[in-house]
């Protein structure tokens, strides 16, 4: 169960714009793979070519040994797709939606209820989809994508336009997706989401893949300094500058922020001065990786 995906030299141009520019990567069977980048980076176009919704200008995609361009039933039974929009039949209840999708795939209707349970929508089974919240719609959309128990699932920005609480709730559902060895490909423009969910992440910008690795390796390779922030009044500026290992000190109304490549020594020194109250340590994140790769702030 779970199929690998090979993407080779994928290119898509709209007029003069190279929306996707010679993108190659491979997704391992059972992997949770992320395509991360700002809007307009080419993530969705890449995903749509992988799903077979768009014919690539050049390059190829293989899902197992299937070519998605053929869009045949072999492929359709293997892949599950959750689209950016909430694509439902109008005025049907949650249960009717999932049963309809089950029927489209020739799956017994009993499976629908099990999936609603998996995404936490059982108590909403008789509610019309128009009356669901954004997060509930996305969960139903994911349940509909899983109705035929596909080996590969594509999720296009599943948490876009959700509030932070709903986003975290959805992560719990998403984490369970590849427990059974299923391959998952997700696009997102949230750095924290990619870090929290993905085994490996391809960082995309302007149609190209800039880096591809595990989130931890991407951050580690950055060799970025650690930031330590202190609550106001715990230490004065001169004392902070004098600390061994502190590379830079910045003062703001929120307190002092020390930058260091040797956090262990700095923290030990702070402990000696009894200045640990309200202290926070922040390592580099994918945000910093993006900044160092593109030379500009991440705009989601």
């Amino acid at each position: 169960m779970g199929l690998g995906i090979e993407v080779a030299g994928l290119t898509m141009t709209y007029g003069d714009l190279r929306a996707v520019d010679d993108v190659s990567f491979s997704v391992r069977p059972g992997e949770f793979f992320g395509l991360l980048g700002p809007n307009g980076a080419g993530k969705t176009t890449t995903l749509e070519m992988m799903e077979g919704l768009r014919v690539p200008g050049s390059g190829s995609v293989r899902i197992g040994d299937l070519d998605p361009r053929r869009r045949d039933t072999d492929l359709q039974r293997v892949i599950g797709v959750q689209l950016q929009a909430s694509s439902f039949f109008e005025r049907l209840t949650v249960r009717e939606q999932i049963d309809t999708f089950a029927a489209l795939y020739g799956v017994p209707a009993g499976r629908g209820l099990a999936l609603l349970e998996q995404v936490g929508l059982v108590e909403k089974a008789d509610v019309r989809t128009e009356d669901l919240s954004g997060g509930q719609k996305q969960r139903l959309s994911i349940a509909c994508a899983l109705v035929h128990d596909p080996e590969v699932v594509f999720l296009d920005e599943p948490t876009a336009a959700l509030d932070p609480q709903a986003r975290r709730n959805l992560w719990d559902v998403l984490r369970g997706l590849n427990e059974s060895g299923r391959t998952v490909v997700l696009t997102t423009h949230y750095m924290d989401e990619a870090e929290a969910l993905c085994d490996r992440v391809a960082i995309m910008d302007a149609g190209r893949v800039l880096r591809l690795d595990t989130p931890a390796a991407l951050v580690r390779d950055l060799d970025a300094p650690v930031r330590i922030s202190l609550a106001p009044g715990t230490l004065d500026r001169d004392a902070a500058v004098a600390l061994v290992g502190a590379d830079a000190v910045r003062e703001s109304p929120a307190g002092l922020e020390l930058t260091t490549r040797d956090p262990a020594r700095v923290l030990a020194a702070l402990a000696e001065r009894d200045a640990l109250a309200g202290l926070a340590v922040r390592g580099a994140s994918l945000e910093d990786v993006f900044l160092s790769l593109t030379g500009r702030e991440y705009r989601s």
């Binding site: 799903e51 869009r71 039933t73 359709q76 929009a85 999708f101 489209l104 795939y105 020739g106």
Partner: peptide, 13 residues
């Protein structure tokens, strides 16, 4: 508009 046509295209229908 709501993407259901594309969704049906990806289903064996």
């Amino acid at each position: 508009h709501n993407g259901l046509l594309r969704r049906l295209r990806l289903a064996p229908v």
